[in-house]
């Protein structure tokens, strides 16, 4: 059964997955829409992901901002499945 409210960990994973599924480069607006978060929460999560070094901002020639995953972000995605399995296995 789908949980009513996504957990923090799941939200972070979803954001990272969306970026990867768009060729590791996505504009803020579609990312906000696809992440299914309020603007306030989205900004909070993105600030945190940038601060943790999972995501970085890049700008194209026209000055448009894109989000892209760092190596640490890719590592988190790889580790996420293990962490998720661990949480389920241990009933946490």
């Amino acid at each position: 059964m789908r949980k009513e409210r996504r957990e923090r960990l799941e939200i972070i994973y979803d954001i990272l997955r969306i970026i990867v599924s768009h060729g590791n480069s996505i504009l803020p607006t579609p990312l906000l829409r696809l992440s299914n978060l309020s603007t306030q929460n989205f900004n909070r999560y993105m600030a945190e992901l940038i601060e943790k070094g999972f995501v970085r901002e890049v700008f194209d020639e026209d000055g448009k901002k894109y989000y892209t995953l760092t190596d640490k972000g890719f590592k988190f995605i790889q580790k996420y499945n293990k962490i998720r399995e661990f949480i389920e296995e241990f009933g946490l």
Binding site: E7, R8, L9, I12, F76, K79, I83, F86, I87, F90, L92
Partner: peptide, 14 residues
């Protein structure tokens, strides 16, 4: 160390 990465409460308690 995993809790610090995820800030998942269950890991903190565990």
């Amino acid at each position: 160390s995993i809790y610090k990465l995820t800030e998942y409460h269950g890991l903190h308690y565990f």
